[in-house]
């Protein structure tokens, strides 16, 4: 495998692209970027547990898109245009003027809702890709030690996320095997919470016991070098972001 990019490069790229996507406000380009990022994640997959966070972020994005579209169709001011179909209008009390639930659904209204949903989903997918490409632990290694408390919180929070998914699956399986077909939220959430809490405490204790944060300065074992490649990647992404913003 080739040497990976510096973890910070990937995060900065994700942020730059996200800014560009919002500024450009073009759903097609946003979708194209998601596609490109998905391809990148697929190529660089190595079976690590945080790799799944990209898929998870896509799923969250899809849910947001669905909710945004449904809400957009049901509620809001009518946008004139090609009429697709008409929903019955809900009678609202007079103290709620200007709001309409139901009514005619136009192509324009549908597309504007879809469009906004896609933009939000893209941003989530971008950050999901950044987490799935750089392990959260690697990110901690490049965090300066003067933000020790933040560093410790960061590593716990980010390593918890993929662990949560694995644990949730394990608990679900165990309960399915006990013959619970309808899985209640409570029956998963309680063991999951207990486990995550105790795991986080263990990790924090281990870091404490090993002297993390004692010295103000910290040295680097085989430092992750900032290469020309990182410069080039950043430059290209920044150029793309600037084009998107200024257009």
């Amino acid at each position: 495998m080739k040497k990976p990019l510096h973890p910070l490069t990937l995060w900065i790229c994700a942020i730059l692209l996200a800014i560009g996507v919002v500024a450009l406000d073009n759903a097609y380009i946003a979708l194209a970027i998601v596609g490109a990022v998905a391809l990148l994640v697929y190529i660089r997959r190595d079976g690590s547990p945080w790799q799944r966070s990209f898929l998870l972020s896509l799923r969250i994005g899809a849910i947001i898109l669905a909710i945004r579209t449904i809400v957009g169709i049901l509620i809001g001011v009518p946008i004139p245009g090609t009429k697709l179909f008409t929903l019955p209008i809900l009678d609202l009390p007079t103290w709620m003027p200007g709001i309409r639930i139901g009514g005619a659904v136009t192509l324009e209204r549908l597309s504007s809702s879809l469009h906004e949903g896609v933009i939000i989903a893209t941003m989530i997918a971008l950050f999901g890709a950044a987490t799935s490409l750089t392990s959260p632990h690697k990110l901690l290694r490049v965090t300066p030690s003067f933000i020790y408390e933040i560093g410790i919180t960061l590593v716990i929070a980010t390593s918890l996320f993929p662990q949560l998914a694995t644990s949730a699956r394990r608990i679900r399986t165990a309960q399915k095997l006990r013959g619970f077909e309808k899985i209640e939220l409570r029956s998963i959430a309680i063991p999951l919470l207990e486990e995550s809490l105790s795991r986080s405490l263990q990790l924090a204790a281990a870091m404490d016991a090993r002297g993390y944060g004692i010295s103000r300065k910290r040295s680097r074992y085989r430092p992750q070098p900032w290469l020309m490649r990182d410069n080039l990647t950043l430059l290209l992404t920044a150029a793309a972001a600037v084009t998107m913003v200024t257009r």
Partner: peptide, 18 residues
Amino acid sequence: NGFVTDIVEEELAFSMEA
């Protein structure tokens, strides 16, 4: 549950880095 990094070598060096 107590490992901080993901590569064996880095894990060994962690305390000394800190």
